[in-house]
């Protein structure tokens, strides 16, 4: 395994005709950690990753691995392993044949093919034509391609898409293991919940621009606390809240009061002689912070 290198995006912009897909994007990704690259569909994640890998030319800016552009890497597959969202397989080729082609091109020993197929759990299907693969198997084959050169950097675009629950659990452990070995792991997703259990850091983009950067815990804010409260006598409860100047909305399980202080609501109800059936504080989750950052998730 080669050492994990720092991935650096420096003022990357990409315009398709008059449309700006990525705008002045700058961030770094550190080795030894799993970094989630998040944003709604169409935010520019895939375009950014393809620029990083030299598949798409940036309109301006540079993206490098340890200071070197992808196309200048002397041994690309042994430095960076990438699995991109698109299923890039000839359906008539077997998994072994598919990986064999690129092992030859990269000058890797042919034994790596079966090693990586075993690693992703596809050894039993190595001689099967890829055209008959399920989406989950294709994802694993894409991952096997990324691992072919035993690279120190992994760039994975939506690797969890299409995996079954067992596969999702497997890949979460896989990502953690890769980072624990000192590799740089950059994983994109449009769903924070998909990767929240595996990532250390998050890079969030929306409409092609960086909106948040930092450790996952930095998303764990509680900007708009709510308390759910309900009573068999809901009308009376509502009147009491109004009288106390606490705004609320009617939710599925009761009234959503705009306060982070359940004790105060309990006291108000007690004083008014109202029986409560529900009273608990609801914390704004990571997902809510994420959605707030990317603009309410209107394009999800």
């Amino acid at each position: 395994m080669s050492a994990g290198a720092v991935i650096e995006f420096h003022n990357i912009s990409k315009h398709f005709g008059g449309v700006t897909a990525v705008n002045e994007l700058s961030f770094t990704v550190e080795p030894g950690r799993v970094t989630g690259f998040l944003g709604p569909n169409g935010a520019g994640k895939t375009t950014s990753l393809r620029i990083l890998l030299g598949l798409v030319a940036a309109s301006s800016g540079t993206a490098t691995f340890g200071g070197v552009r992808y196309r200048d890497l002397p041994h690309p597959l042994e430095t960076v392993g990438a699995a991109l969202e698109a299923a890039s397989f000839h359906p008539g080729r077997t998994a072994r044949g598919h990986l064999g082609v690129y092992a030859i091109a990269a000058g890797l020993p042919r034994t790596r093919v079966m090693e990586v197929l075993t690693q992703v759990g596809l050894a039993a299907h190595a001689a099967q034509r890829v055209g008959g693969y399920s989406l989950g198997m294709r994802q694993r084959l894409g991952l096997a391609y990324a691992l072919l050169g035993d690279p120190g950097v992994l760039v994975l675009d939506e690797p969890i898409n299409g995996l079954d629950p067992e596969g999702i659990r497997w890949i979460r452990g896989f990502l953690r293991d890769m980072a624990a070995e000192g590799r740089t792991v950059l994983v994109s997703s449009h769903l924070l919940s998909e990767v929240a259990q595996s990532v250390d850091d998050v890079v969030i983009i929306a409409r092609g621009e960086l909106v948040h950067l930092g450790p996952l815990s930095s998303l764990d804010t509680d900007a708009a606390p709510q308390t759910i409260v309900d009573s068999p006598d809901r009308e009376n409860l509502a009147a009491t809240l109004t009288a106390a100047g606490i705004s609320f909305s009617i939710g599925r399980t009761g009234l959503l009061a705009a306060t982070g202080d359940p004790a105060r609501l309990g006291h108000l109800a007690f004083e008014a002689g109202i029986e409560l059936s529900v009273l608990h504080r609801q914390k704004a989750g990571l997902e809510d912070s994420f959605l707030a950052l990317v603009g309410g998730g209107h394009s999800l």
Binding site: R71, V80, L84, Y102, A105
Partner: peptide
């Protein structure tokens, strides 16, 4: 072309 150009930029 994607895996091809990744292996040989």
């Amino acid at each position: 072309l994607t895996p091809t150009f990744l292996a040989t930029p």
